[in-house]
């Protein structure tokens, strides 16, 4: 019973969502929309869980006085501070403290994290392009051709009016033929895998989320 009821709920909800793609009837759509609304409400409640988890974890660290306690103090302080500003002050206007802090503290920090990508791409590309095997040589050759096709200097060396369309033409062929074929093959396999996983969950063959077991 403890597992049968959650499985039945999974099955009914899953079947309704699949049907939604095939059944345009207003009543059916209303049922699935209602279910999705319930989902949103449950998601809203889980944020309380999330906050409880953050407080629990970081208060423990602060109490223990561990080396990471300072980070925890900053995190909990920032969280409470932003929450207080959002609740007790106007948080709509451009000059409200809440928006000001978001724009001047969170946004630049977020952009900094994103900007790290440029450096990480360089270091990852360096490792990936080391010609240690036949596959790596192929990867390196394709990458060099695509890069030359992408930048003006490539077209200056071997222009689009030349044989095979020069570097830009070669780049287009690599991107549109072998690369696209590979991408589509991965997508088709992934789609079948996703359907297979979905059916396994709906049928209750996979039941880790229900407490496992047969």
């Amino acid at each position: 019973m403890k597992r049968a009821v959650p499985w039945l709920l999974t099955f009914v909800a899953g079947a309704l969502m699949i049907n939604d793609f095939f059944v345009p009837h207003r009543t059916h759509a209303a049922i699935t929309q209602e279910l999705q609304q319930w989902g949103l409400i449950v998601v809203a409640f889980t944020y309380v869980l999330g906050m409880a988890n953050v407080f629990d974890l970081h208060f423990k660290k602060i109490r223990r006085g561990s080396s990471e306690a300072l980070y925890s103090i900053v995190l909990v302080g920032s969280m409470l501070g932003m929450a207080a500003l959002g609740i007790f002050h106007d948080h709509q206007g451009e000059h409200s403290p809440f928006i000001w802090l978001y724009n001047t503290v969170y946004d630049p920090l977020s952009a900094t994290m994103f900007a790290l990508l440029a450096f990480f791409i360089t270091s990852a590309a360096y490792r990936a392009f080391r010609a240690r095997s036949t596959e790596a040589v192929l990867l390196l050759s394709a990458a060099i051709l695509v890069m030359l096709g992408q930048v003006p200097v490539g077209a200056a060396i071997w222009g689009p009016d030349s044989f095979l369309g020069g570097f830009p033409g070669l780049k287009d062929w690599i991107m549109d033929v072998p690369n696209l074929a590979g991408k589509r093959a991965i997508l088709m396999g992934a789609a079948l895998g996703a359907i297979s996983t979905g059916i396994r969950v709906i049928l209750g063959l996979e039941r880790a989320h229900l407490g496992g077991g047969k």
Partner: peptide, 18 residues
Amino acid sequence: IAACDYTLIGEEFFAASA
């Protein structure tokens, strides 16, 4: 693929639990 030791690609990822 470039940065990790092993990568489950597409359908392999969905097949892993089975």
